[in-house]
């Protein structure tokens, strides 16, 4: 059994002197992208006022994501819907792709969760600057006082790293455990673990999406101009 921390290229592209390795996780990601985009295109090709079952399911998904964004941030969901919703969908499908025999989920390798964490890290900066400007975003690091600037900057990096490690660790461990158990008793025994892996995958997708939303909202809120607290006159 290969180490889960080791990845091997599936094939190489480009000239031999500058060959770019294409890992299996990238191919699986392309497949997931193809499925999601084609499915979405087919689903939204004929949207009607009286929805079909598939359209109703899609609308339920969109409504649920919107409601989650509202509950977490209290803000209008439209600016964050595509980012947070796509993160959730991609991670969920990637995690559940372990159910397909011979497929290793992209999130079970370090590169994909790292890429997702990096995107979240950058998106926090993007939404923070868009919400309060560069000055407002940078002022957010000085809250509650400038002494906290190093710690806040370090936290902004470490929380992204923690998201990466949490997602990678949970998914990788699930896949690894199932692989170990499957190598010992291949028939039926891994099924409960696979079910558990489904639950873990859904939970991790939800946690990743919600934490992304929380961090982005925090950056946006900190970047907004601070209003003086009201004082009661006696």
């Amino acid at each position: 059994m290969d180490s889960p921390l080791e990845t091997f290229p599936l094939f190489m592209v480009g000239p031999e002197s500058f060959a770019v390795p294409i890992m299996a996780s990238v191919v699986v990601t392309w497949a997931i992208m193809a499925v999601l985009v084609l499915g979405a295109a087919l689903l939204t090709r004929r949207l009607t006022m009286v929805p079909s079952r598939a359209q109703a399911t899609a609308e339920l998904l969109v409504g649920t994501v919107d409601q989650q964004i509202r509950d977490v941030t209290g803000a209008a969901p439209a600016p964050y819907r595509a980012f947070v919703g796509t993160l959730f969908l991609f991670i969920l499908i990637a995690n559940w792709s372990s159910l397909i025999p011979g497929v290793t989920p992209p999130t079970a390798t370090m590169e994909t969760p790292a890429a997702l964490a990096a995107i979240v890290f950058l998106s926090i900066i993007f939404f923070g600057i868009r919400g309060g400007g560069v000055g407002g975003f940078l002022r957010g690091f000085a809250l509650p006082n400038p002494v906290m600037i190093p710690l806040n900057m370090l936290e902004s990096i470490t929380r992204s790293i923690s998201m990466f490690v949490r997602l990678f660790g949970n998914v990788m461990s699930g896949v690894f455990v199932i692989a170990i158990v499957g190598s010992l008793a291949a028939l039926l025994v891994p099924i409960p673990l696979m079910v558990l892996d489904l639950l873990t995958g859904a939970v991790q997708a939800y946690i990743f999406a919600v934490l992304s939303m929380v961090f982005i909202t925090s950056a946006v809120e900190k970047g907004k101009p601070q209003t003086a607290p009201e004082t009661k006159e006696s």
């Binding site: 990845t7 390795p21 294409i22 890992m23 996780s25 990238v26 990601t29 392309w30 992208m33 999601l36 985009v37 595509a82 980012f83 796509t86 993160l87 991609f90 992209p106 390798t109 590169e111 994909t112 790292a114 890429a115 997702l116 990096a118 995107i119």
Partner: peptide, 13 residues
């Protein structure tokens, strides 16, 4: 792969 995946996710978004 990190770069591919980052681009892939951004394109997917």
């Amino acid at each position: 792969t990190l770069g591919f995946q980052a681009v892939n996710v951004l394109v997917l978004i």
